[in-house]
Amino acid sequence: MAMTDVSILGEFEQVVLLAILRLGDDAYAVTIRDEILQCTGRDVSRGSIYITLDRLETKGYLKSRLADSTPERGGRAKRYYELRPRALEALKEGRRALVALWRGLESVLT
């Protein structure tokens, strides 16, 4: 049941979810993009961040809330994201699958 309910996440979707997880309370598009750059060195386009966030939210992996506006944002609200339990399940499942696949390959690929 759990296996079929959690559809397999795309690689970039996993990256975004992990970044949100790492950021905790401070996860919104700008910090998510910075976090991905910090950890992986990948300079991803803003468009793909927004599209992915929106898609993950539609699929029920994320929930978002609008926070108060600040002057440095020109009086515009900020949208914070946090993981739903479903996303955590999917990440764990993804990790498990990868670790299983990795097992025994260390000598070849490190």
């Binding site: 919104y28 700008v30 803003r46 927004y50 609008l66 944002r73 020109g74 515009r76 949208r79």
Partner: peptide
């Protein structure tokens, strides 16, 4: 999405 994205861009 309009508000938060415009806000993000403005912030950066």
């Amino acid at each position: 999405l309009r508000e938060p994205i415009a806000g993000d861009l403005h912030e950066e």
